[in-house]
């Protein structure tokens, strides 16, 4: 469905952020993308959705394919029309619009026909939103705002969701709720998802397949269960360590293991 082949991304023509990665999302699949801060996860999503163009960034090598069509030159609205909806990092709601208006913006690109039933669908997935539908979105809590943003993307009838850190700044219980809903959406609507997460445990539980990104390169990929078993992942991303409390010995080894990946 979505393929990135040897993609290289540069900002301002000089800053090389993504150094040749290949990645694939199958129809109906949930794929997670893990990595430290600044690894380039957000940049990959922006390259797919075309938001890169607004930040003076460019796919300088390789290409992005979606359903057999090359999309790395498209503007964000065009990728959205093609069925890729990007839920951006940091809950970019329309602050001065009401919750319902926010949701309706997602349907602007489609005809009027199914808007109403789409809206009902969003409210069944997120019952909380139905109770605050007339409220100004800027005053909602962080968790509710995240729901609005996901609901808004859902209104665009996506084939593929790009989710950038949906758990950012949200309490653990609510994170679980949101991921359960995402799971249901994936199951019922058959929407594929590419999820970027800092919280590796949740992401790996949630996804079928995972990629680990470091410094703009993919250093590891595989089915999520396999990745969960990987020693390095356990140690660096899941915080499990076989040696338990005796961590101070390991500093040197951290370094060497990272080194091996690069």
């Amino acid at each position: 469905m979505l393929q990135l082949v040897n993609v290289e991304v540069r900002y301002h023509e000089v800053i090389l952020v993504i150094r040749g990665i290949s990645l694939e999302v199958q129809p109906g699949q949930i794929v997670s993308l893990l990595g430290a801060n600044g690894a380039g996860k957000t940049t990959i999503l922006k390259a797919i959705s075309g938001i890169l163009h607004h930040e003076d960034g460019k796919v300088s090598e390789g290409f992005v394919n979606f359903q057999g069509r090359r999309i790395d030159k498209l503007e964000p609205y065009a990728t959205a029309e093609a069925g890729i909806l990007h839920v951006m990092e940091g809950r970019r709601i329309f602050e001065h619009l009401s919750v319902e208006e926010n949701l309706l913006t997602g349907a602007i690109m489609h005809g009027n026909g199914k808007t109403h039933s789409d809206l009902e669908k969003v409210y069944t997935y997120f019952p909380k939103l139905a109770s605050v539908r007339k409220r100004t979105a800027g005053y909602l809590s962080g968790g509710e705002q995240q729901m609005v943003v996901i609901g808004r993307a859902l209104m665009g009838r996506p084939k593929l969701f790009l989710l950038d850190e949906p758990s950012l700044g949200i309490a653990p219980l609510l994170i679980k709720e949101i991921f359960d809903i995402l799971n249901a959406i994936n199951r019922d609507e058959g929407i594929s998802m590419l999820v970027v997460e800092q919280n590796a445990r949740i992401a790996l539980d949630f996804s079928n397949y995972g990629y680990v990104l470091e410094n703009g390169r993919i250093v590891l990929d595989g089915p999520s269960d396999k990745i969960k078993q990987n020693e390095d992942i356990k140690e660096f991303y899941l915080g499990l360590s076989e040696l338990g409390s005796r961590r101070s010995y390991k500093d040197f080894k951290h370094y060497s293991r990272r080194k091996r990946w690069l």
Binding site: A80, M88, L97
Partner: peptide, 24 residues
């Protein structure tokens, strides 16, 4: 109207408006 809504959304956040399929 829809175009009015698109105008409001664009004035709030141009990039987010593009990301939901509005032709800014």
């Amino acid at each position: 109207t829809k175009i009015g809504l698109a105008m409001k959304a664009t004035s709030d956040d141009t990039i987010a408006a593009g990301s939901v399929g509005i032709r800014v």
